[in-house]
Amino acid sequence: MSTDDPIIEFAGVNKWFGEFHVLRDINLRVAKGERIVICGPSGSGKSTLIRCINRLEEHQQGRLVVDGTELSDDLKAIDAIRRSVGMVFQQFNLFPHLTVLQNLTLAPMWVGRVPKKLAEERAMQQLQRVRIAEQAGKYPLQLSGGQQQRVAIARALCLTPKIMLFDEPTSALDPEMINEVLDVMIELAGLGITMLCVTHEMGFARSVADRVIFMDHGQIVEENTPDEFFNHPKNERTRDFLSKILAH
């Protein structure tokens, strides 16, 4: 896959939380349509890395270009980027005071200026895609965790994003519900949307990812195809990490 014309480019990106150096000299080019899995121990900066892409976190040094726009303090640019980047959170973050359908139509109606009827039509299509259309009139807290996360994915898709960010989408779920979410994500992988996914689901990484990135201490330690990454990890730290999470 060519990265000559990247949709996301990190060039020497650094970030600190107070004194804590959370991202260190990040260089990363993501090609259009590429599917990347990011893993690493907790506190390694992987969530922060993808949260920089839609400016939920600000980087302090280096260049970060998303879909041809460099992230800076220009609020217009940030709005444009957020419209083309969808995000799915570990804790779902659905709006509990709105129904499932209202959760999905809110952004298209108010950000995309889509008429209500059309927005609802499209929302129902997305709900069908994640196989949860019959729950459209319910409130999020009346659904199971797996259902909520699928609604969250549908909500992000309603803005027809070019890039989807997943921040540990299955970490807050009961074991029985992980697969229903992963199945939806595997389907999405076939749509040609650029995906960056922070996850420890190595089965998902093997079957879907074009590239696996391993982070530790705010740095990218290793990046490789899933085959190479799992079978011939180059770095000692990677081998150590993999032995721990693949042991069981």
């Binding site: 959170f89 973050n93 709006f95």
Partner: peptide
């Protein structure tokens, strides 16, 4: 997370 979700949707 509520504000972050809203921001990520471009609101």
């Amino acid at each position: 997370g509520q504000v972050e979700a809203a921001q990520s949707l471009g609101l």
